[in-house]
Computed example of a mutant assay.
Amino acid sequence: MLRQFHKMHGLGNDFVILDAREQPLEMTEALARHIADRREGIGCDQLILLEHSDRADLRMRIFNADGSEVQSCGNATRCVVRLTGAATIETAGGLLSGASEGDAVEVTLVEPRFEWDAIPLAYPLPTDPLPMGWENLDRPYAVNVGNPHLVFFVDDLEDADLEGIGPGIETDPLFPERINVNVASVGVNSIRLRTFERGAGLTRACGTGACATAIAAIRTRLASSPVNVHMAGGSLTIAWAPGEPVRMRGSATHVFKGFIDLP
Rank of each mutant, 00 (worst) to 15 (best):
T77K: 08
C79N: 12
P131E: 00
G102A: 06
L95T: 07
A122Y: 04
A36D: 03
A142K: 02
D45S: 01
P129K: 01
T84G: 11
P148R: 01
A99N: 08
A118W: 13
P120N: 04
H34P: 07
A36Y: 08
G98V: 07
D117W: 11
E106H: 11
R139C: 05
L130W: 06
N144H: 10
G93Q: 00
A142L: 12
I89Q: 08
G98F: 12
D117L: 09
R38E: 07
R113F: 15
G133S: 01
A36S: 05
R38Q: 09
E101Y: 14
A65W: 04
A32W: 06
L58D: 12
S72Y: 05
V107Q: 00
D138K: 13
L95E: 01
G146M: 11
A99P: 04
A87K: 14
L50N: 08
N136I: 02
S53F: 15
G146D: 05
R82L: 04
A65C: 09
S68P: 05
D117Y: 04
H34I: 07
N64Q: 13
R113L: 14
L31R: 11
Q46I: 10
P140D: 15
V107W: 02
F63S: 01
L50D: 09
V81F: 09
I42H: 01
W116L: 01
R113Y: 15
I119T: 15
S100V: 13
G93R: 01
E101C: 15
R78E: 02
L49C: 03
Q46R: 12
L125V: 09
L95I: 06
P120R: 08
L96S: 00
A76I: 02
I62K: 02
M60H: 01
T91Y: 15
A36V: 06
D54H: 13
D57A: 12
L49R: 08
N144D: 07
R82T: 04
A99R: 10
R82K: 05
A122P: 02
P129T: 00
R55Y: 08
L130R: 08
E115F: 00
M132L: 11
M132C: 12
I35K: 12
L49I: 10
P112W: 06
A30L: 15
